Amino acid sequence: MSAQKQATFIQDLKTDYRAIVLNYFSHPNIKPIENFTDKVFYSNIPVPQVIQIHMDLIDEFSKQLKIEGRSDEVLLDYRLTLIDILAHLCEMYRRKISKHSHV
């Protein structure tokens, strides 16, 4: 993948993740999480990069809340979003390993 395509792809991942986080508690839906983890898994994106996407987004939200004079304590709950994403990725990795070990 060219550097430009990769940058666009990562930006798309960030946009997808932002939508997941914003809707995680108000409109719970597993499909966006599955779509996101499929993209990450099949594009061979390393888990630390997924964590970085989460941290950057939460940092952005924290700065905005501080500008508005509000507490950013509520953002702690959004760790659940990251845990959910990582759990889905772990399950995908587990299934892949299981298929290879049974061959």
Rank of each mutant, 00 (worst) to 15 (best):
S2L: 02
S2T: 06
K5R: 13
K5A: 15
A7M: 09
A7F: 13
T8E: 15
F9R: 00
F9A: 00
I10Y: 08
Q11G: 11
L13P: 03
L13M: 10
L13I: 03
K14H: 05
T15Y: 01
T15L: 11
Y17K: 01
Y17T: 07
Y17N: 02
A19L: 14
V21M: 11
V21W: 02
V21E: 08
L22A: 02
L22K: 04
N23G: 13
N23E: 14
Y24V: 12
F25I: 04
F25N: 10
H27V: 15
N29F: 04
K31I: 15
P32S: 09
I33N: 03
E34N: 07
E34M: 01
N35W: 01
N35L: 12
N35C: 02
F36M: 05
T37S: 08
T37W: 08
D38K: 10
K39G: 00
V40S: 11
F41Q: 07
S43M: 03
N44L: 06
P46Y: 05
P46H: 13
V47A: 06
V47G: 00
P48Q: 05
V50G: 07
I51E: 09
Q52M: 08
I53D: 06
I53N: 01
H54V: 12
H54Y: 11
M55Q: 15
D56A: 15
D56I: 07
I58P: 11
D59G: 12
D59I: 08
D59T: 06
E60C: 02
F61P: 00
F61N: 01
Q64R: 12
Q64P: 00
Q64S: 13
L65T: 00
E68I: 03
E68G: 01
G69K: 05
G69Q: 08
R70K: 15
S71A: 08
S71P: 08
E73P: 01
E73D: 15
V74C: 07
V74D: 03
L75Q: 04
D77A: 14
Y78R: 07
R79G: 15
R79C: 00
R79E: 06
L80K: 11
T81D: 04
L82T: 06
I83V: 11
D84S: 14
D84K: 08
D84W: 03
I85N: 03
I85A: 06
L86Y: 04
A87Y: 05
A87F: 05
H88I: 02
H88G: 04
C90M: 12
M92Q: 14
Y93S: 11
Y93E: 09
R94S: 03
R94M: 04
R94G: 00
K96F: 01
S98I: 09
K99A: 15
K99N: 14
H100E: 15
H100D: 12
